Amino acid sequence: MAMKVYGLPMSTNVARVLVCLEEAGAQYEVIPIDFSTAEHKSPEHTSRNPFGQVPALQDGDLILFESRAISKYVLRKNNSELLKEYNISESAKVDVWLEVESHQFDIPMAVVIYQCLILPVYFGGETDVKVVEENLEKLKKTFQVYEKRLFKFKYLAGDFLSLADLSHFPSAYYLLATPHATILDEFPLVNAWVTDMLARPTVKKVIEMMKATA
């Protein structure tokens, strides 16, 4: 039975789950949730995700929310090597860098995406340049750490691709669509890492899904 993913692929959190499903070769179905009609706040959807957010995943009787938890479930169920769970040391490093992605990358990146892409396009608002600059500085500090790490290893957790890397892809893709994509020019190893990640067939497939629902 195919797993059901509730949400739109254009969402970074939904895209994170979708790329894991693609990497795992799992069968799945995307069930769109219409934010314009507040469907995400409906009793039906909040029974899946009590915070009224996306994604939610249904696998038989099991219902999960929170994209990183869903991603781990999908990869574990399909025995993916992206978690390195057969090696306690390597799996711990994956966990560390997934935490870094969640706290040091995704938070400032979400602000930049909202200010540069969502607010002006979907709400007709004006980008707050000061807020963007403040969060770009936070991103630069994160990228400085990444640059040093990628000098030692091919990927963040080591010389192997993991969820810690792929979890970055949705926001990294949107960063390239902002006027601030040149921030990556300051960090050549990070730039190469992003380019390599976006070239993966699974990522390309999800990007097409993101474009189709934007």
Rank of each mutant, 00 (worst) to 15 (best):
A2Q: 07
A2H: 04
P9Q: 10
S11R: 07
S11Y: 02
N13T: 13
V17Y: 05
E23G: 12
A26D: 05
Q27H: 12
Q27W: 04
Q27P: 01
Y28I: 13
V30W: 08
I31D: 12
P32L: 06
P32M: 11
I33H: 07
I33A: 07
T37C: 06
T46E: 12
T46C: 15
R48I: 02
N49Q: 13
P50W: 08
P50G: 06
P50C: 01
F51L: 14
G52K: 03
Q53E: 10
Q53W: 06
V54M: 15
A56P: 00
A56R: 06
L57S: 10
G60V: 12
G60T: 04
I63V: 15
E66W: 05
E66H: 06
S67P: 04
I70L: 04
Y73I: 11
Y73P: 02
V74H: 09
R76W: 07
N78A: 09
N79Y: 07
E81T: 14
L82R: 03
I88Y: 08
S91H: 15
D95E: 15
V96D: 09
E99V: 08
E101M: 02
E101Q: 15
S102G: 05
H103I: 12
F105V: 13
V112Y: 04
I113K: 04
Y114N: 13
Q115R: 05
C116W: 03
I118S: 00
I118Y: 09
L119D: 00
P120S: 04
V121D: 14
F123C: 02
F123P: 03
E126G: 01
K130D: 11
V132Y: 12
Q144G: 14
Q144M: 05
E147S: 05
E147N: 12
K148M: 15
F151P: 00
F153H: 15
F153S: 14
A157I: 07
G158Q: 01
F160G: 00
L163W: 00
D165I: 00
D165E: 02
L166C: 11
F169T: 14
Y173C: 08
Y174N: 04
L175Q: 08
T178L: 04
H180A: 14
A181N: 09
T182W: 02
I183E: 00
I183H: 00
D185T: 08
V190C: 11
V194H: 01
L198T: 02
P201W: 01
P201D: 05
P201G: 00
T202H: 11
K204H: 03
V206R: 12
I207R: 07
M209P: 03
M210G: 04
K211N: 11
K211D: 10
